[in-house]
């Protein structure tokens, strides 16, 4: 394992803050990818897109192909990679600002297209890289430099939205639990269709008011019942009001993927070629 995993590292200097849990997300992603490589995938077959933000520095620390894209556009960039070569294993690393603010439309529509790709949202409930402004998942009352009066709006619940949009794989992880993340990321990448992994990634510097969730978290076994999924989604409302935070595969279902629906892409997949070599 460690040899394969070492090849996934880069020599770039890491600029995350000391104590940032993005380090653990990086490590778990490497482990999950290494696992797939050991099982027969090629390192060259992986491609990623990242947004802009602290999360996006994954790009410089992970040695796979990719585009360090635009803020908010992780999903369309990944979607394009799948359109361009359906044989690629595509990963998107995005922030909560990225996904739920700037790029919200894509989050809903990609569930309909259901491309065989994985979206990982590093949800730290604030815009960290731009120094802590509120995002759509920040709790009410969160005071920051842009909103000294505090956030007025209730956070929205990405798990509920993902369910309502028809996302075919929905999971939630805690960024402090590296082994669990690695396990879930592997499942997400092995899922046939669009998989969404929401990682609660508390920032060491900003939005310290959203801490204290550890005792609320508990792990569930993989779920594929939609009624159960809806109840699980309701257990926590992202608003510092207690409740329980279920972690694990909250919902999974098999349905036709983008690649299944388009004959052109099905053909490329069957022949195991890209457009370039069609």
């Amino acid at each position: 394992m460690s040899d394969v995993k070492n090849k996934l590292a880069t020599k770039n200097e890491n600029t995350w803050c000391p104590g940032c849990t993005n380090f653990l997300i990086l490590e778990s992603a490497k482990r999950a990818i290494a696992k797939l490589i050991e099982e027969g995938s090629k390192q060259e077959d992986f491609a990623m897109a990242t947004g802009i933000g602290c999360h996006a520095k994954m790009f410089d620390y992970l040695n796979i192909s990719g585009i360090y894209g635009l803020h908010g556009r992780v999903i369309p960039t990944c979607l394009g990679m799948k359109l361009g070569n359906p044989n690629l294993k595509v990963l998107g690393f995005a922030g909560d600002g990225d996904t739920y603010a700037e790029g919200m439309a894509h989050f809903i529509h990609v569930a309909r297209y259901n491309p065989d790709m994985t979206l990982i949202v590093h949800d730290n409930q604030n815009f960290s890289l731009t120094t802590g402004q509120a995002t759509p998942t920040s709790q009410v009352g969160y005071k920051n430099k842009a909103k000294p009066l505090g956030e007025f709006n209730t956070p929205f619940n990405p798990i509920k939205l993902a369910l309502a949009s028809g996302t075919s794989f929905i999971a939630r992880c805690d960024s402090k639990d590296m082994m669990h993340m690695a396990e879930i990321l592997e499942k997400a990448m092995k899922h046939k269709g669009f998989s969404f992994v929401e990682i609660i990634q508390d920032c060491a510097i900003f939005n310290k008011g959203n801490k204290g969730k550890d005792e609320l978290m508990y792990k569930i076994s993989d779920n594929s019942d939609s009624d159960v999924a809806r109840k699980l989604a309701e257990e926590w409302n992202y608003n510092n009001e207690g409740g329980k935070i279920p972690l694990g595969v909250l919902y999974q279902e098999e349905k036709p993927t983008l690649e299944d629906k388009w004959p052109q892409l099905t053909e490329l997949k069957e022949k195991k070629v890209s457009w370039k070599n069609k």
């Binding site: 894209g69 369309p76 979607l79 394009g80 359109l83 361009g84 529509h109 457009w275």
Partner: peptide, 15 residues
């Protein structure tokens, strides 16, 4: 917005 970003993703992938 998706049109252009997806086109870049696809072109990057070889289309």
């Amino acid at each position: 917005i998706t049109v252009v970003n997806a086109a870049l993703g696809a072109s990057f992938a070889g289309a």
